[in-house]
Simulated scan of single mutants.
Amino acid sequence: MSVYILIVDDEPDLETLFRQHFRRELRAGRFSMEFATSAPAALQRASDVCDPSLVLILSDINMPGMSGLEMLPEIRAKRPEVPVIMISAYGDAETRRTALERGAEGLLTKPIDFGQLRQEIDARLGQTA
């Protein structure tokens, strides 16, 4: 089974950054990454994929229009089996509490610790094996 991770962020440079950090895994075919530049696009993509190949959603909190926190309950309703980890420049207790209350499995702060993220992805891939 081919698995993928959906990354939601309005910053155009983020895709390049993620592809650089995970180039070995992507080249080896361990997983693939898809990118959505808005919450509505992510909701549509999560609805379009009806099989278990979607193993993780990473979403920025602060985006124009619908924020990641506003998207979170909707994505959890559509795909309750897919864990969502929020990404924020602000790792304060209130942001963390709100994200967890709305269904996030965790909160990563920017700049992203790609070592920590790699461990999280490895754990998700281990659960699907």
Rank of each mutant, 00 (worst) to 15 (best):
V8R: 04
Y4F: 11
Q44I: 10
R79S: 09
P40A: 04
L43G: 08
T128P: 03
H21M: 06
S59W: 02
P12F: 07
R24W: 01
R76T: 04
R24M: 05
E81M: 05
D122K: 13
I85A: 11
I75A: 03
Q20I: 13
S67D: 08
E25I: 10
R23N: 02
Q127E: 10
E15L: 04
T128Q: 13
E101T: 05
E81K: 04
A46Q: 06
E120S: 13
P111V: 10
L14V: 13
D13Q: 14
A36G: 05
M33L: 15
I61F: 03
A104Q: 08
L14G: 03
T95L: 14
R19V: 04
Q44N: 15
R102Y: 08
R97I: 02
D122S: 13
E15W: 02
A93I: 14
Q119G: 15
E34G: 07
L107M: 09
T37M: 07
A42F: 11
Q116T: 15
N62L: 05
A77W: 09
D10N: 04
P12L: 08
K110P: 00
L58S: 00
F35G: 01
A104P: 06
G65R: 12
A104N: 06
A104V: 05
G106T: 10
S38D: 06
Q20S: 13
V8T: 06
E101Y: 01
S53L: 09
M33A: 12
G126H: 10
V55D: 06
V3D: 09
D92R: 04
Q44K: 15
A99M: 09
G29L: 03
I75G: 00
A123Y: 12
N62V: 09
V82I: 08
P111A: 05
Y90E: 14
P111G: 01
K78M: 08
D60V: 00
I112S: 03
R96L: 14
E34I: 04
A99R: 01
S59C: 09
G65D: 14
E105A: 11
V3E: 12
A39N: 01
L107G: 07
P12Y: 07
S47D: 15
G126N: 11
R118S: 15
G106W: 11
D10L: 00
V55P: 00
T98D: 08
R23D: 00
I112N: 03
C50W: 11
L69M: 12
Q116P: 05
D92Q: 08
M86G: 02
A42E: 09
F114Q: 03
M63V: 08
E25K: 06
M63A: 04
A41Y: 01
I121G: 01
G115I: 14
L54C: 12
R23E: 01
S2E: 09
S32L: 10
E94A: 03
L72S: 03
S47C: 12
L54G: 10
E11S: 04
S47Q: 15
M66E: 11
